[in-house]
């Protein structure tokens, strides 16, 4: 229980931030237009990801898959930050 909870609570948090951040950066027609809706989506997404950690057969699988998903999401975010217009400064 503890292992899975930590995977969901920690890696789920960073994954949810990366995924919603990525969606905002990729939003057609300007990222600034969907910032508040994105924060609204972030919370249920985080809840779903915490739950998802409990659907894996073992805690180590939960950690493994969520770490892989984090790496992929942050790599995509890193690319998006450098290639897309992003927020006005």
């Amino acid at each position: 229980m503890i292992g899975r909870s930590l995977a969901g609570v920690l890696l789920g948090l960073t994954l949810a931030i990366a995924l919603t951040g990525l969606a905002v950066l990729c939003w057609p027609g300007g990222s600034i237009r969907v910032l508040v809706p994105a924060v609204v989506v972030f919370f249920p997404l985080y809840m779903v990801l915490i739950l998802a950690a409990f659907l894996y057969r073992t805690a180590s699988r939960a950690w493994g898959w969520m770490a892989v998903a984090n790496l992929a999401a942050f790599a995509a975010l890193w690319i998006a930050q450098r290639t897309l217009p992003g927020l006005p400064s």
């Binding site: 931030i17 990366a18 951040g21 006005p88 400064s89």
Partner: peptide, 18 residues
């Protein structure tokens, strides 16, 4: 708090001023 986290992790510090 969520805005601060997004600001640091996804938006290069450009979110909080907005």
């Amino acid at each position: 708090i969520a805005m601060v986290a997004f600001n640091v992790m996804a938006f290069d510090g450009k979110l909080v001023p907005l």
